[in-house]
Design a protein around this nucleic acid. Structure first.
Length: 274
DNA sequence: GTCGATGTTATCAA
DNA sequence: TTTGATAACATCGA
C-alpha cells in the first residue's frame, strides 16, 4: 500500500499527533514481526518521550528522548493511526501505545507483512534493511539518478520499483512517472540518454510532489493518514488502474500486463517500446 | 465456494 | 546481472 507520499503523510501526521507526547504504556496484541520482540518494544518505549518522526523511502522512524528509534515498514496494509482512548479498536491492531494526551497510537496491519525494530538511534541505519537501500527519491540529485540509470540493463519498471537505485517508489507512482515521461516500462534504463533520463527524473519529482500535496492515494480500504483521512491523489491518477480504458492523452486503449512481477499499465501510443 | 488480484519485498532458481 | 516464481497474509470482487 503505502509508497513514499503515503509514508510522508503518515510521518507528518505523527509529528502533529504523536511527537511531543509521552508514552504511558504499550500493549502488544500480536508479537509477530516485532524486533527484537514485542516485550522489548513495550519495555523500551514505556515512559519515553517521542521527539521526532522521519522517513527514508517507505521506511518510517520514531525517535525517543533516551536515544532509541523505532524503525518500521508498513508494507502492503500497515496503518499508524491516533485515536481517542475510548474509540473501539478494530480487528488487526497489533500494537497500541497510550500517549500522555489521552490518545492511543495504534499499529494496524491486516495482511501482517509489516514490521518494527526498536534500536539505539545511533545504530538505526545499521539495520540490514538499509544496507542496499538507495537514496530517498526526494533527496536524490538529478546527476546521481542519471548516473544510476546509465549503467543499467534492467527494464525501467524493475529498476524504479527496486529500492536499491531510488527509494520510495511503488507500483502506482512508477506507472504514473513512466506514463508522464512517455517511456515504455520494459525499456532498459541504460538506453535512455541524457534528455530522457532527466525528463524521467523530473516527472518522478513532480508526481511525488503532487501526491504529497494530495496527502497520498487511497484506493479501496487500505491507506489512511494518522488522523484517518483518506488521500485524494486517486482522483488525479492518469494511468494506474486504468488498463483497458482510453488513454487520457491519445485515446488509445491502455495495455495491462505483468512487468517485473507487478500489474503494469501503459499506453502503446504514448509509450512506444522503441 | 473458487479464483485472481491487492499499495511490498526477501529469497531462490534459472 | 536480471528476471520470474514463490512465499508471507487477509480481504474483496467477479
Amino acid at each position: 500500500m503505502p509508497e513514499l507520499p503515503e509514508v510522508e503523510t503518515v510521518v507528518a501526521g505523527l509529528r502533529r499527533e504523536a511527537v511531543g507526547r509521552w508514552i504511558e504504556s504499550v500493549e502488544i496484541l500480536r508479537d509477530q514481526h516485532l524486533h527484537p520482540s514485542g516485550a522489548a518494544l513495550a519495555e523500551g518505549l514505556t515512559g519515553r518521550l517521542l521527539t521526532d518522526a522521519r522517513r527514508w523511502g517507505k521506511i518510517w522512524m520514531l525517535d525517543t528522548d533516551d536515544g532509541q528509534t523505532v524503525v518500521g515498514h508498513l508494507r502492503m496494509s500497515g496503518q499508524l493511526r491516533v485515536h481517542p482512548l475510548d474509540e473501539p479498536r478494530r480487528d488487526h491492531v497489533h500494537l497500541v501505545a497510550t500517549l500522555s494526551d489521552g490518545h492511543e497510537l495504534r499499529w494496524r496491519d491486516v495482511r501482517r507483512f509489516g514490521w518494527m525494530h526498536l534500536v539505539p538511534t545511533a545504530e538505526a541505519l545499521d539495520l540490514p534493511v538499509f544496507a542496499n537501500l538507495g537514496p530517498d527519491a526526494l533527496a536524490m540529485a538529478e546527476d546521481e539518478f542519471v548516473a544510476a540509470l546509465r549503467g543499467s540493463r534492467r527494464g525501467l519498471k524493475a529498476l524504479l520499483l527496486g529500492q536499491d537505485v531510488i527509494a520510495g517508489l511503488g507500483n502506482i507512482y512508477v506507472d504514473e512517472a513512466l506514463f508522464r515521461s512517455r517511456l515504455h516500462p520494459r525499456l532498459a534504463g541504460g538506453r535512455l540518454g541524457l534528455a530522457r533520463a532527466r525528463r524521467l527524473y523530473g516527472e518522478i519529482r513532480a508526481v511525488l510532489d503532487e501526491a504529497i500535496a494530495a496527502r497520498g492515494t487511497s484506493i479501496s480500504q487500505s491507506y489512511r493518514g494518522v488522523d484517518g483521512r483518506r488521500g485524494a491523489y486517486q482522483e488525479q491518477l492518469q494511468i494506474y488502474g486504468r488498463g483497458g480504458q482510453a488513454c487520457l492523452v491519445c485515446g488509445r486503449e491502455l495495455l495491462s500486463a505483468q512487468v517485473a512481477g507487478r500489474t503494469t499499465v501503459w499506453c502503446p501510443g504514448c509509450q512506444p517500446r522503441r
